[in-house]
Design a protein around this nucleic acid. Structure first.
Length: 193
DNA sequence: CAAGAGATCATCT
DNA sequence: GATGATCTCTTGA
């Protein structure tokens, strides 16, 4: 049986809000990638917000280009790009059209079942880092631009978890030392273990 | 443990 | 031609 677990695909309105709110509220939601009959899923534990024209850490601060176009588009679409020649990063676009913003999904926790001598063990495994995450989820450029609120391939679910604010940590974002006054903004959200 | 470097390429100058 | 919203491995204290 499937039990009575709530599973609600996040709608566009969820992503049309302020980027910092979306980044905060994505913690505890479930990222799902379906490849044929195979499902890869995990609970989101770490995000970062990139928003506005001035945020020097955001690709969009360099202007509207072919690559960043998607960040200026409607909320709920995936923004996926290649970084350092070998890793993909998965973002979801937020806020209104024409305002460039997205949330980078940096970490998830997955359930892993291992079978050892006829005994089933369930364990949680953490995947830290956007590059490792996309590698695990088998996400690449082919999914760039996809509408995560309509897709049956890639989406995000609410399974009814409420995350209290005391279990959330905020820190500056990673890998953006060049971002001047924006490098110290606490726009990274982490679900404490 | 911390620090440094290499991998590797789409995107922008 | 330079660089980056990263990761992994190596070196050295």
């Amino acid at each position: 049986m499937f039990g009575n677990q709530i599973k609600i695909k996040l709608k566009r309105e969820f992503f049309e809000r302020k980027t910092l709110v979306v980044a905060r509220e994505l913690l505890g939601k479930y990222l799902i990638h379906r490849i044929g009959t195979k499902i890869i899923s995990g609970m989101i534990t770490e995000t970062e917000a990139y928003h506005g024209f001035r945020d020097l850490a955001s690709h969009a601060s360099r202007g509207r280009t072919k690559r960043t176009e998607i960040m200026f588009g409607p909320a709920g679409h995936a923004y996926i790009y290649l970084i350092y020649g070998m890793y993909y990063c998965l973002n979801v676009v937020t806020e209104r059209e024409e305002y460039p913003a997205a949330v980078l999904i940096r970490g998830v926790e997955i359930d892993q079942k291992s079978n050892l001598k006829n005994k089933n063990f369930k364990s949680k495994i953490k995947i830290d880092g956007p590059g490792k995450l996309t590698r695990h989820f088998q996400i690449d450029k082919n999914l760039n631009g996809i509408d995560v609120t309509a897709s049956r391939e890639l989406w995000i679910e609410d399974r009814g978890l409420r995350i209290p604010s005391r279990s959330i940590k905020r820190t500056p974002r990673i890998g953006i030392d060049y971002a001047g006054p924006y490098k110290d903004k606490k726009w990274r959200f982490i679900l404490k273990p």
